[in-house]
Design a protein around this nucleic acid. Sequence first.
RNA 1: UCCGAAAUAGCUCAGCGGUAGAGCGGAUGGCUGUUAACCAUUAGGUCGGGGGUUCAAAUCCCUCUUUCGGAGCCA
Length: 431
Amino acid sequence: MNTIFVKDIKDYLGQEIHLRGWVRNVRKSGKLMFIIFRDGTGTIQTVVYKPGIGEEKFELSKTLTIESSVEIWGTPKEHPNKPGVYELDVTDLKPVCISPEYPISKKEHGPDFLLSNRHLWIRAPKQWANLKVRHTVYHSISEYLNNNSFTRFDSPILTPNPCEGSTTLFEVEYFDQGSAYLSQSGQLYLEPAIMTLGRVYDFGPVFRAEKSKTRKHLTEFWMMDAEAAFVEHQENMQIQEGLIRYVIRTVLEKCSNELEILERDVEQLKKADAPFKVMTHYEAIELLRSKGCEIEHGEDFGANEEALLTEGSDVALFIEKWPKKIKAFYMKQDPENPDLVLGSDLIAPEGFGEIIGGSQREDDYDVLLARMEEEKLDIQTYEWYLDMRKYGSVPHSGFGIGLERLVQWMTGTKHIREVIPFPRMIYRIYP
RNA sequence: UCCGAAAUAGCUCAGCGGUAGAGCGGAUGGCUGUUAACCAUUAGGUCGGGGGUUCAAAUCCCUCUUUCGGAGCCA
């Protein structure tokens, strides 16, 4: 007798097998009963027939409730009316734990209730699919970078100083050394790393204490930062495009079932695997003004404007060469225009917004120091960072991907809280 | 932090001055092919907290709390 997973069921047609998992739903019809069974790898309809299984076992099967755990023995076969769909004729079953009334019913629920029951909600089909796609995105990013000579290098989460002066940080007591901060980006720590490993990336949780209340923000989210020595602005964008298109292809290839459950428009995703568009910040403002936006040169984009920029486009769009004033201090000055920096944001199509921020980094000691003084940063705490411009400085670039934003795009999920296992938001830390 | 909306059964909601309702979920019964199965019966409520107006408040007013949607900031 083989104990198998639902995903492998088609290899065992006509043989008796053993499954372990949970009851998604039960439908009773006199001497016949249908148990919708799932085990983490997939879902299958199982059929319990009273004359076949006997009075005693049939009564036992009637004790099963929604989300009870159970072991099932039976023979897989094709669905009588649906070619290509499989079901299981049950020969025996053993309840593991009978659930009392399950809080999440088959009808609709509100977001507050679902989030309070996130520990149970993750069993729902769409949530299951989101988590599977998340895993695939995570894995394919690592795979692409590993195949392109990047080495994983883990940045610290507790940091003595903010990475970027702008955002609000979570502060924690650090023994008798005053305050430490939860990292909002591992990027600055990757710059020393490239001087030993050449090309590196980190992947981990980052924290923003901003009181953001939108469907694109979490206070704790996962970010992948990559950094590469001797890579300049243009090549930086090429790496990003190669990476994102690899992720799209991998998700399409490995998650077709999940995308179907999510009702994702797969054709739209297929079209996104084509050369990305590039536009300077100046050109983007011109475009927005031509579309009727009241926006001035030198300004940053709002959520509406981001969506307008990719309106009608199937592929993602790089906005490059940003005004120095609205970007971080470490970005390299454009040699052709000292008011601009060689930074790029990647904006996903279909209104999913910014998913990558990247730039060539300033590698000249004096220029960087002047820029930091201009921003009134505490030079002492950044001394180690400035050292990188003293000891064998090289041109280098990097970028950071918000994992959840990318998963949101791949899955077509409206709200970011559904693509992370336990979302942390301004008004929610439970469960 | 700002603007807007909401809070009624376990869940989703209706009721908007005059005896608290439906669907789903639960319980019980029926049905051999169901696919948020269906049919019948049934249990289940200090109408978010506090205060006020009124003969009478879930309903009108004030206040507090909580949540949702959006903005800003960003990934």
